[in-house]
Design a protein around this nucleic acid. Structure first.
Length: 309
DNA sequence: AACTCGGGGCC
DNA sequence: GGCCCAGAGTT
């Protein structure tokens, strides 16, 4: 007789969906009146940033730019300012560029087709699938770090997934969509990975699928390979970039190079960071040689650029 | 396939 | 101090 756990749709999907129906967090972008744009913004913000840090920033962003056209008409410098300390400010720039494309090429509506979504800067495999599932209810293979970890543990008996997505994972994830609640499953399994099947200290006590989890029944085998350790943040180029962006976000006008250098201990490092930020088109140099956030606004400052009645 | 890219929460 | 986080783009 076959293992009753042979079909993960009954052993994994059903329990996790039931768990989710009761335990899911009331995240603001799960509210029924949220637009696809609101979902897209949430996905950009949640890339490599914890949900709890995103929530207040998501509210501020949608209050200010409730539609793609609203953001598309704004100065990218203001987008970077409102992004504030969420990290990876290129995401704010990409979101602004995506808004322009949505306004100009999609009639102001977030597209649903995979090719159209992937053509938006900052929208990769995960984000495109997430928008399809969470904004449009479509069955799509949503593979974020949570889903990958749940599959690795429960189905494959591995402590953690590999460093990059494999086709085998995609096939496993696709098989888990073969029921009548595919989009809800994608949300449920992400939530399950975030709250129960956590990377550190998984909550196996009270886990609804503890009995079928291969990692658990195999005795929690150690990871099969080392995860590449990320470099220390203190004193890093990334921190130097962040310091510059912090100064420029807070400034009303351009800042002199000497003012920027005085805010960092390593002159060559800050010079490299400035060069990189200019190359990334996050900042720009004014004719006198001062630095400011790159602006896409034309002509005069916002006050003079207001519409005249 | 390996790098780079913020910043903070948590242990 | 290290680890992790609803990843994506570049080389």
């Amino acid at each position: 007789m076959r293992n009753t756990f042979a079909d993960p749709r009954s052993s994994l999907v059903e329990p996790v969906l039931s768990w989710f129906d009761d335990a899911c967090r009331p995240l603001p972008w799960r509210s029924p009146d949220v637009t696809p744009w609101g979902i897209l913004v949430s996905e950009f913000m949640c890339q490599q940033t914890q949900v709890d840090r995103v929530i207040p920033r998501w509210h501020l962003w949608l209050d200010r730019w409730p539609s793609p056209a609203d953001l598309a008409g704004a100065d990218v410098a203001d987008a970077i300012r409102l992004w504030d300390r969420l990290g990876y400010p290129r995401r704010a720039k990409w979101l602004h560029e995506s808004a322009v494309i949505i306004r100009d090429e999609h009639g102001g509506q977030v597209p649903t087709a995979t090719e159209s979504l992937r053509a938006l800067p900052g929208v990769g495999e995960y984000t495109a699938a997430a928008v399809q599932a969470f904004a449009f209810g479509l069955p799509s293979v949503v593979l974020d770090t949570n889903v990958r970890r749940v599959i690795a543990r429960t189905l494959n008996g591995q402590a953690q997934p590999r460093s990059h997505v494999t086709n085998a994972e995609r096939a496993q994830a696709a098989a888990l969509l073969e029921h009548d609640r595919p989009a809800e499953w994608s949300a449920a399994v992400m939530e399950f990975g975030a709250l129960i099947c956590r990377a550190a200290q998984p909550a196996c006590d009270g886990c609804p699928v503890a009995r079928m989890c291969r990692w658990r029944t195999d005795g929690y085998p150690a990871p099969e390979f080392e995860i590449r350790r990320q470099a220390a943040f203190a004193g890093s180029d990334r921190q130097a970039r962040g310091r510059i962006m912090s100064l420029l976000r807070a400034a009303d006008g351009p800042i002199t190079p000497s003012a920027i250098e005085s805010a960092w201990h390593d002159a060559p490092q800050i010079a490299r960071a400035l060069d990189g930020l200019v190359k990334d088109a996050l900042i720009e140099q004014t004719p006198p040689g001062d630095f400011r956030l790159r602006s896409t606004a034309e002509g005069q400052p916002a006050q003079s650029a207001q519409i005249d009645h």
